[in-house]
Amino acid sequence: MSNEKFLIYLLVMAGVTYLVRMIPMVLLKKKIKNRFVISFLHYIPYAVLSAMTIPACFYATDSPVTAAVGFIVAVVASLFERSLVQVAALSCLGVLATELIMKFI
């Protein structure tokens, strides 16, 4: 896309992201005590990441079949508590292996 159009999105996005971090650091002097707010913010990252991952990840490769294999590999590797990079690498290898197998079937 053109840099001019992109620049407007960039300014809005960077501005909002910065303000979310900056305003509470500068203005709030006391800890947030509200239990609902704390709980809500505790769950938000997991809610965001799972909504972003499923079902989008099944469309992230060339075919839902290879993506599904990669997904399963990632879940299994995570259950064994491998590191982020290990999980990501294994899931990509799973996709690549499936791609190769499918090519020869």
Partner: peptide
């Protein structure tokens, strides 16, 4: 190669899965 970038398309989701699954467990 296209095949490799297609496979790498899953990498960032793999990392998200690695963040969520251990906590959900």
């Amino acid at each position: 190669p296209a095949m490799v970038t297609a496979a790498l398309g899953l990498a960032i989701y793999g990392m998200f899965i690695a963040i969520v699954v251990p906590v959900a467990k």
